[in-house]
């Protein structure tokens, strides 16, 4: 189906977003001698090997001990280091929530919590590893910045941007190979949404892997004569309220799309903005109060209602409610 679509963005290569992190971290290490890396026995999975090889004295293997890793990282900031911690999203957040809350967020430490294998697209490992609540937990913490980039290039750009951002941050990315459709030389501004496609009938606010699904959905909607605007919200917190309100003023309705629980995710944040500033129809695409399961990423996005076809249906529902 995708082959026949007239997509506004195309790709020649697929790559995992975690490789964008790994390559970004290596570049960050070269640019700034204060960047240090910590990993809890997942160096290969997080693509931190290149950093470890080039900067062995600035890489710290923590073993399977995530709580300790967060504390270490907080301590390392005292004296000017910029620690990037790496493990799966599940072990980066839920397992260590109290450590992040006290030693990082409340203490305002310059720690970058970098989390891979987030969401359903982790795939076959199943629900124990497919965390769908991490964005909610992290965005509730005062002082915490939350970033969910959409492809390899954007993840690399986000990683580099975090070096110059002072304060606690959560960077969420994933496992599967995914289209690379944003430019390699993109400017990444934390907190600044990116308008991917102009449209007039409905806005699709998407984050992470689902930005690609939103781009596919836009082409499908266009075939039916519906003009959709696609906005890439890579920073969930602080949220770019201005971009949201500007777009909704034009289109009058919206769909949010994310690989996360609806409760606590991007859609929930957008709903708050709309309720306070400009009440408008909003349909929320995300996992609806359930755990995931084993399967391929494509199968899971379909079963849990997160793919382009579901975004199209949601867009029509939103338009009908105007």
């Amino acid at each position: 189906m995708e082959k026949t679509l007239d997509l506004k963005y195309t790709f020649t290569e697929k790559k995992d977003t975690r490789s964008g992190f790994g390559d970004g971290l290596l570049e960050a290490g070269r640019r700034n001698p204060n960047v240090v890396g910590l990993c809890a026995d997942l160096t290969g999975s997080l693509k931190m090997n290149a950093f470890e090889k080039e900067f062995p004295e600035r890489f710290f293997q923590v073993g399977i001990a995530e709580a300790n890793m967060i504390g270490l990282a907080a301590g390392m900031t005292i004296g000017g280091k910029i620690p990037f911690t790496g493990t799966f999203a599940n072990f980066s957040t839920g397992r260590v929530y109290d450590q992040i809350r006290q030693s990082v967020a409340y203490s305002e430490k310059n720690v970058k919590i970098c989390a891979s294998h987030a969401g359903l697209t982790l795939g076959e490992d199943g629900a124990t590893h497919q965390i769908l609540e991490d964005v909610g937990m992290m965005k509730m913490l005062p002082n915490m910045t939350v970033i969910v980039p959409c492809d390899y290039n954007q993840t690399k750009a986000a990683t580099l941007a975090l070096v110059n951002h002072v304060g606690p941050a959560y960077l969420r990315f994933g496992r599967p190979s995914w289209p690379i459709f944003t430019p390699a030389d993109q400017k990444f501004e934390i907190g600044k949404a990116i308008k991917m496609i102009e449209g007039t009938d409905v806005t699709i606010f998407a984050t992470g892997h689902l930005v690609w699904e939103a781009i596919v959905a836009e082409a499908m909607l266009r075939e039916e004569g519906i003009s959709a605007e696609v906005i890439n919200i890579h920073t969930i917190k602080p949220l770019d309220e201005e971009a949201i309100l500007t777009s909704i003023s034009k289109t009058g309705c919206a769909v949010s799309a994310e690989e996360h629980q609806i409760n606590g995710g991007l859609g929930d944040s957008i709903a708050q903005v709309l309720a306070r500033k400009q009440p408008s129809p909003l349909e929320l695409i995300g996992v609806n109060d359930s755990f995931g399961e084993s399967g391929t990423p494509t199968q899971l996005l379909e079963k849990y209602g997160l793919n382009a076809e579901n975004i199209v249906k949601a867009a029509k529902r939103a338009i009908a409610r105007k």
């Binding site: 967060i70 270490l72 301590g75 390392m76 005292i78 004296g79 030693s103």
Partner: peptide
């Protein structure tokens, strides 16, 4: 203890 170890390594 974790925090202190991190500070010591820095």
């Amino acid at each position: 203890l974790s925090v202190a170890i991190g500070a010591a390594q820095t």
